[in-house]
Amino acid sequence: MAELKCSICGNSFEPAESTALPFCSDRCRLIDLGRWLGEHYHVTVEREVPEDELESEFRD
């Protein structure tokens, strides 16, 4: 398996050497959990002005 890049610390690591996949270490996995529980992870939903002609033709 190719090297992975840890999402938390950014270090590259050998997946076979980690017991905390997909992270490099327990600690980074813990930080990630903390971020989920702390509601730090969010996605931004962009609201576009409706303009999709393709959709409109399917509407009733």
Partner: peptide, 12 residues
């Protein structure tokens, strides 16, 4: 024009 969404702590 947009909003930020999270998975709430309670949901997790």
């Amino acid at each position: 024009s947009r909003e930020d969404k999270v998975l709430a702590n309670e949901e997790v």
